[in-house]
Write a protein that binds this DNA or RNA. Structure first.
Lengths: 227, 227
DNA sequence: GTATGATATTTTGTATACAAAGTAATAAAT
DNA sequence: ATTTATTACTTTGTATACAAAATATCATAC
């Protein structure tokens, strides 16, 4: 985590709020983000809103079309596939490094997070599982002991979050996800970086049936406010 | 390349100009970027400058300290190491994918770029080599046929550009770089993705002596305008 | 009823104004 | 002479004003 020095900038607070609403799906892909409207609803002027939107556009969460306003970024299918392909590689890299560099306390934390996932899985609670799964992955990133990599993985994870969330709804995904976690933890504890990387790549939903399942659920998201 | 639709936004033009000056070292790391000063020099108001700075901050090229203005980002040594570590992985991924997906015209272009490097190397011209080397790497990214990966690699490459440039000055680096390119091209043409990835990782300056050399040259950059 | 074109309205992009925080400068005290 | 406190000056961050582009509305023609 980057040391979040007291910001004192409204535009960043606005950015955080809008971002939160995007990644949780309150503002779905394709939704128009009217500057004046947002300014009014947040009780500020357009300036900090504009600055926030520019920042979110740089992060890839919104798209600013010159003179035509901002919308929540809609990710085309093939682009989504590409992003998952990169995400898999980044996470695999985390795993490879983590196998070499993870500390004892981090091992404990990772196992604890894994066990927490087990509870949600047994209770068949996709929402809890979703959050615990995210914690698990973030611990993995941190264990790489490469702060820049950790940031990149988190940033991309954020962009893919709305799509990942849908994933867990598909038949039996939660159970297989949990089983895969077990294999990943095992490989890391055994300090087998290549095995960890291989298993993580397989875990990140990208190939064959998995991605097809995801794509099939896509119409549920997106296409907000198109004519 | 992202389809650069006619922008019509001054803030983006300003961003491009400032970015250019940062990556070429005209604005060295640590330099203060005064909004009013920039606004005057570009003949616009502070607004588009501010928006440009926010965007550059998101890209990691400048650092905005709340209420204390923007400076050209200074990258700490360990952070720089982390970034090169990730860069190596991204490029290796490009190589692995390119080995599988490169088209015939792309093969031709890559070989042509490689041969162009040879000319600069033989003429012992680091500046030409620097530019031709960049072209070579960009062709590699494109050959991955993953547009998102290509963008990420280019973005990170941009951030590392001022540091990479120094690299070529160190003893004999240009010659070894060129030799490594040959091996990379060979592996890709042979469609051996793993070999290509291995060779690219070795090529990207990150381990042992190479990184030490880079660090040793760092004092040449940076520390502009500190008390 | 649909299509086309002119006009009106909305919305973005940039400039300017102003308040608050930060920085520099000066003066007083040890 | 160095340090501390008060004051003046910059510079940032936000609000508002205005111009230009895009969108919507409405009337007219076919």
């Amino acid at each position: 985590m980057e040391s979040k020095q007291r910001t004192s900038r409204r535009s960043e607070q606005m950015g955080d709020q809008i971002e939160e609403r995007i990644v949780t799906g309150v503002y779905p892909p394709g939704m128009r983000l009217d500057e004046t409207e947002l300014a009014n609803s947040f009780g500020v002027s357009r300036t900090p809103i504009r600055e926030a939107l520019i920042q979110l556009a740089s992060a890839g969460l919104v798209e600013i079309r010159p003179r035509r306003g901002a919308i929540v970024a809609e990710i085309a299918q093939n682009r989504l596939y590409e992003m998952f392909e990169v995400m898999a590689e980044l996470e695999a890299m985390c795993g490879r490094l983590a196998a070499r560099r993870i500390t004892h306390p981090e091992q404990q934390a990772l196992m604890a997070a894994h066990q927490a996932c087990e509870a949600a899985q047994k209770a068949n609670d996709p929402d809890s599982y979703y959050h615990l799964n995210e914690q698990f992955h973030q611990l993995l990133y941190a264990a790489s002991h490469n702060g820049f990599l950790e940031e990149q993985a988190n940033a991309l994870g954020k962009r893919l979050r709305p799509y990942r969330r849908l994933q867990l709804r598909v038949r039996d995904r939660m159970n297989s996800s949990f089983a895969e976690h077990a294999g990943i933890v095992e490989a890391i504890l055994a300090q087998d970086g290549d095995l960890a990387a291989t298993r993580i790549t397989a875990h990140v939903v990208v190939q064959g049936q998995r991605f097809a399942d995801l794509v099939a659920t896509l119409p549920l998201l997106g296409s907000a406010g198109r004519s």
